[in-house]
Amino acid sequence: MLNISDDGTIASGFSFNILLISIDLFRNNNKIKLRNSNSESRFYLKLIIRTNWAEILKKIFPEKTKIKIGFLNIPFHAMFVHFPIALYTAAVFFLFLALLSDKDSFRNSYFYLMIMATLFTPISHFTGILEWKKKYRGVRTHIFINKNRYGLILILVGGVCTTWYWFYPGILDNTGVLNIVFIILNIFILPLVGYLGHLGGKLVYGLPH
């Protein structure tokens, strides 16, 4: 039988141990009874389950969770963040080549690169948020706020450019205000990507002296 005091002074580490013991008992088919399990105690248990689920999984399934927990430690953001940077830059480069030489191959290259970049940007953003929550404890500072904000703008601008060209591929043939707006939007991607990369560099390589 496990006793949990109802005075609200249970230390988180201590109650976490109780939970792990209870899981051990559960695995050995023993009955667990929580005495004095008032609302406060239950709240504590719920909180612990939420915060230490990886440890609990490790206890329940020691072998199977190894893969899952290892999977969580893979630096996904570092893997995915370089795709939009490279793809958007290459896409804008091909856009200029298409404007200069008017070859269909350059236009197609621009379009396919933009599609790839547009697909990878939300993934990169999402993995970035996960890393911010995990590695940097979700602290809202200038760098993270700006990264989030400009990341969303990049998703929006990239998405608009790709959809625009998808439905109106003739936008590059016309000469007019829309054509200029389209090119400016595409050029606008470059400083955005550069600034986001700069912020990422600050986080990885440290703040400038």
Binding site: Y136, V139, H142, L203, G206, L207
Partner: peptide, 14 residues
């Protein structure tokens, strides 16, 4: 103070 927090939050994972 938020600037100092920024420095700390970068330094801790390092």
């Amino acid at each position: 103070m938020e600037k100092i927090v920024e420095v700390l939050i970068i330094a801790i994972p390092k």
